[in-house]
């Protein structure tokens, strides 16, 4: 759009930039405050003397958290749930999407319909819970990984991506004696890296952030993921060791939020591109 230079147009720009600055403040202030509060003196935080910047900097809340074995265990749990979930999801989804991209495969339509049907209908919370319980998965990593293993949207996105790949390459490989599995691993997947990375990141961030499956399927402390720890410390307000110690009762909460969020915020600048890409593919198909 060319600059018209009229007064109205300039006013429009000024108001817009003003609104955007408000937006930036609203989006970042809570996170800055959380971080400042987490390294400030507890009394200062409780009495409202910390507004933006930290006051009387101290790391006592972090020391407290990091000396708690439960925090480390939950961190490790989240890492392994995320890693296993992402890896299995990519394997199972791509293995299922690849044959579905073959338009000539008998039975393809039926299977696609079977998957699409689940977008409209589901058994709901309780019947799913009963299956997980019946299979004896409660309190295992599989209760977290298996019930949400394949996302139908992701399956369709991947299938669409595979369909667009040139068939000649695969034919050539088949003539050279590659099996279907070899074609998938050696030809198709390397060409599909963008979509694999997008879907892998979506799955990983979702799993890192999820808490509800853990809430209903896990009740052993040693299995809790990070998000459940955060919930217990802040929302259910059960203190980790030392009920009501005034040196860190409030700042502990802010430190816990920070610890749970930092990994996501660290990778965020690098993965944002893939996410936007993924959201677009999903959106266009959806």
């Amino acid at each position: 759009m060319k600059t018209r230079g009229s007064f109205g147009s300039k006013l429009f720009d000024a108001v817009n930039i003003g609104l955007m600055i408000v937006l930036i403040v609203v989006m970042t202030y809570p996170l800055i405050y959380v971080f400042s509060a987490s390294i400030s003196d507890n009394a200062m935080v409780m009495s409202g003397q910390v507004v933006l910047w930290p006051r009387s900097v101290t790391l006592v809340a972090y020391e407290r958290l990091l000396s708690n074995p439960d925090v480390w265990i939950s961190y490790w749990n989240t890492i392994r749930y995320t890693a296993v979930h992402t890896l299995l999801t990519l394997i199972v989804t791509s293995a299922m999407a690849y044959p579905l991209a073959k338009k000539w495969l008998p039975g393809r339509k039926t299977i696609l319909l079977m998957a699409a049907f689940t977008l409209l209908f589901s058994g709901g919370m309780i019947p799913t819970f009963l299956i997980v319980q019946n299979l004896g998965l409660l309190n295992t990593i599989w209760a977290i990984v298996l019930p949400s293993l394949v996302s139908t949207w992701h399956l369709f996105i991947m299938r669409t991506f595979f369909e667009a790949l040139p068939e000649e390459l695969e034919d050539a490989a088949t003539i050279d004696g590659c099996s279907s599995l070899q074609v998938l691993i050696r030809i198709v997947l390397p060409l599909s890296l963008p979509v694999l990375v997008s879907i892998g990141l979506f799955t990983a961030v979702n799993q890192w952030n999820s808490f509800f499956d853990a809430l209903i399927y896990l009740n052993e402390r040693s299995m809790y993921p990070l998000q459940i720890m955060v919930r217990n410390i802040i929302i259910a307000s059960s203190n980790v060791q030392g009920e009501g110690n005034t040196a860190y009762i409030e700042t502990l909460k802010y430190a816990m939020i920070t610890i749970a969020t930092v990994p996501i915020l660290c990778v965020y600048p690098f993965v944002q591109k893939y996410f936007v890409q993924g959201a677009m593919i999903g959106g266009i198909k959806g």
């Binding site: 199972v92 299922m96 589901s122 299956i131 019930p147």
Partner: peptide, 22 residues
């Protein structure tokens, strides 16, 4: 090709269709 799809199909049956029946 069908074998490749098998784990995914099992997933849909066990965690989507069995609960619907449930």
């Amino acid at each position: 090709l069908y074998l490749l799809m098998l784990p995914g199909i099992l997933y849909y049956i066990i965690f989507k269709y069995v609960p619907m029946y449930g």
